[in-house]
Design a protein around this nucleic acid. Structure first.
Length: 264
DNA sequence: AACCAGTCCAACCGCAAAGAC
DNA sequence: CGTCTTTGCGGTTGGACTGGT
């Protein structure tokens, strides 16, 4: 038994939206808010599937959208965020008010990729194109990144529902240097990861040196989980209000400064 | 003017996560 | 706790547009 289709395809329009459809969708959402997308088309009198309505609203009709060209600052911010987050367009979009994930994705593929290539930078790895260590090392790194990132996400989901977007960040288990630092030298981060600890077999210990302090954090604290029972560094209570004015909301360490100070 | 190749971007598709029951 | 439904995300596509010949 397969998945049921998201909508009754036989009686739905496809392709470009007409002005009338846009007006109907806008009017309905203004009156009722963004509710159940599945039932919205019928309620609004639209022959579209809910997915299509949602996409149209989010990417084109939302009143808070910023139309027009990307600024140089936005360009650079997208590059930095992409180097940290990878193709997590929705997270990147979350840091650029008025921009949508689809817009940023398109912009990345059409403009920024080329821009980076012209600079001699591989857009997918953010490393120099002629970096001979790229291919072999990246394969291993990619694997590590995926497993580690999923670990990060898992930890985050169970402990901090509101700040997923702030914490789900790509890290690299590179014992020689902090890769995140290398990719974004001006982010004022020093991220290194220690070799496996003698007593620690299952979890990577992250040593995260904040801007001025050079203080070491355990894995849990590095994720903003300093109240967690998994905290092993005993740094509880010394982080918040620490460096670079990165304020933290109730109980949340501003991981890598993503929340406020660096990434706007 | 006609054709073609390249570019751009709105919209679609499939999948996975989240939520409801 | 398992199953089903809904939502959201990222990759991809197709058509409109543009510039060159």
């Amino acid at each position: 038994m397969g998945r049921s289709p998201c909508c009754e395809k036989a009686h739905t329009n496809k392709g470009a939206w007409t002005k009338e459809e846009d007006d109907r969708l806008i009017a309905y959402i203004r009156a009722h808010g963004e509710g159940c997308w599945r039932s919205l088309p019928k309620a609004a009198g639209l022959l579209r599937c809910g997915k299509s309505c949602r996409l149209r609203w989010i990417n084109y009709l939302r009143p808070d959208l910023k139309r027009g060209n990307f600024t140089e600052e936005e360009d650079e911010l997208i590059i930095k965020l992409h180097s940290l987050l990878g193709n997590k367009w929705s997270l990147i979009a979350g840091r650029l008010p008025g921009r949508t994930d689809n817009e940023i994705k398109n912009y990345w593929n059409t403009h920024i990729r080329r821009k980076l290539l012209n600079r001699g930078i591989d857009p997918s790895t953010h490393r120099p194109l002629n970096d001979s260590t790229n291919s072999a090392q990246n394969n291993q790194e990619a694997t590590t990144t995926i497993s580690f990132a999923s670990h990060v996400k898992q930890e985050t989901d169970t402990n901090n529902n509101d700040n997923k977007a702030n914490v789900f960040v790509e890290l690299h288990r590179d014992s020689k240097r902090g890769v995140a630092r290398e990719r974004c030298p001006d982010l004022n981060l020093e991220l290194t990861i220690s070799p496996p600890h003698q007593n620690q077999e299952t979890e990577d210990q992250v040593i995260l040196k904040t801007g001025g302090g050079g203080r070491s954090l355990c894995f849990a604290c590095s994720l903003g989980l300093q109240n967690s029972k998994d905290c092993s560094c005993g740094i509880v209570g010394t982080i918040n209000g620490g460096t670079s004015g990165s304020g933290s909301s109730a109980g949340g360490y501003d991981f890598l400064g993503l929340k406020s100070s660096v990434l706007v």
